[in-house]
């Protein structure tokens, strides 16, 4: 078990080194043409300023609140002034005679419940492994 863990750590170290090395092998450079293009596009760009909140007089808020309340009242009054809608006809269902059935519940849940328990245990084991790996690899590197 310990040998597997140390082999895994060695692979991880090698992987990190390889990723860093291979990233360094990707050669890109900003050509003079691209540099000029970037400079020109920045010169042409206009910064977007965050909108400054406009302060409005106190009466403005009172007036808008009153207008809103008055509109709501008007709508309520108009809706209630109209004729009341007719009630839909009531349908009465005839009672059905049920045949007498001897119903017994089938015992089918037992295997499913044990399977669910097994799955939960597998999931908990897998979660513990992932947590251990995450803590081992990233736990100390970040605050």
């Amino acid at each position: 078990m310990r040998r597997v863990a140390s082999r895994r750590n060695a692979t991880v170290d090698k992987l990190e080194r390889r990723l860093k090395d291979d990233a360094g092998r990707i050669e890109v450079r900003i050509s003079p043409e691209l540099d000029e293009r970037l400079r020109a596009s920045l010169e042409a760009a206009e910064p977007v300023r965050s909108p400054v909140p406009v302060s409005r007089p106190r009466w403005f808020w009172w007036a808008s609140s009153l207008t809103g309340a008055a509109s709501a009242l008007l709508v309520i009054v108009l809706v209630n002034l109209g004729p009341a809608p007719e009630a839909p006809p009531t349908v009465t269902a005839q009672p059905l005679s049920m045949p007498a059935l001897d119903v017994r519940p089938a015992v089918m849940l037992g295997p499913l419940e044990s399977e669910l328990d097994n799955l939960k245990r597998d999931f908990a084991r897998a979660e513990a492994v992932v947590r251990e790996d995450v803590d081992q690899i990233f736990g100390d590197s970040d605050p």
């Binding site: 970037l38 596009s41 920045l42 760009a45 910064p47 977007v48 300023r49 965050s50």
Partner: peptide, 12 residues
Amino acid sequence: QDTLVNAYRYLD
């Protein structure tokens, strides 16, 4: 180019 222009425009 888009990244740098957007960064400049929205630096605020």
